[in-house]
Design a protein around this nucleic acid. Structure first.
Lengths: 117, 117
DNA sequence: TCATACAGTGATAAATTAATCACCATAATG
DNA sequence: CATTATGGTGATTAATTTATCACTGTATGA
């Protein structure tokens, strides 16, 4: 994992939150996992546009930060399932609210971005 | 402003939200402005670590996306004040919640990051 | 033996965001 | 004229995040 050169400000909750979930895919992944999609191969399909490699990276970070846990079933072919930890769960209400806000804001953003030519 | 090469998915609220507020400083800035800090020079002081140049960029983007508005007073020295638009205001409850979550999560993150040597 | 499904990694490049540093402009003040 | 306060920009580099592509490994079934 990348070793930060610019340190985190632990006294700013917003900073801390951004550090662990402020990326292109993490919110979507947590959301999808909370909806019941647990296996990597299913997540790749469920999350539009993400690639396998990027997915693995994001899952690893989320696990490292303690928002996700995983269970390995020694079946063949191998089965791995990710799940939300308590910390991950505690984030869900926020994710739902952000998603809702984003959907409401989408038309406005679309309009703004399409106007500037 | 940078012209995206990888397009936004307007159907994913989380994606949309990340596009407009998913950056190192935006949440902090909106938070600070909502608390009454309005002028650039005061924001530079209030937001720990941000530089003048970066501040101006972030303010410009927030204004462009319609989360902030600004008033120019033709005084000398020049006085400019930023304020939250309705869209910006609608985001505040979320920002407060995220900040709170981040503060609660901070000790856990600190521990994790300090352990890995 | 060859192909398939699944999870995962290494090396590298491309995209994106943030930081640096040096500037411009206005008008007041000494 | 030199300095100060305020807001702002341009060019460039550094930092960070995402994406690509090619692999490894296990066991199964054709």
């Amino acid at each position: 994992m990348y070793q930060r050169k610019i340190p985190i400000d632990y006294n700013c909750g917003l900073n801390v939150a951004m550090e662990v979930v402020g990326s292109k895919w993490k919110f979507c992944l947590l959301d999808e996992i909370s909806k019941g999609t647990k296996r990597p191969k299913d997540l790749v399909n469920a999350v539009n546009g993400i690639t396998k490699r990027v997915l693995q990276n994001q899952l690893k970070e989320l696990e490292f930060h303690g928002l996700l846990g995983k269970t390995i079933y020694t079946e063949i072919p191998l089965r791995v399932e990710y799940f939300l930890t308590a910390s991950g769960e505690s984030l869900m209400p926020l994710i739902v609210a952000i998603d809702k806000w984003g959907l409401e804001f989408a038309p406005q953003l679309k309009k703004i971005l399409e106007t500037e030519d």
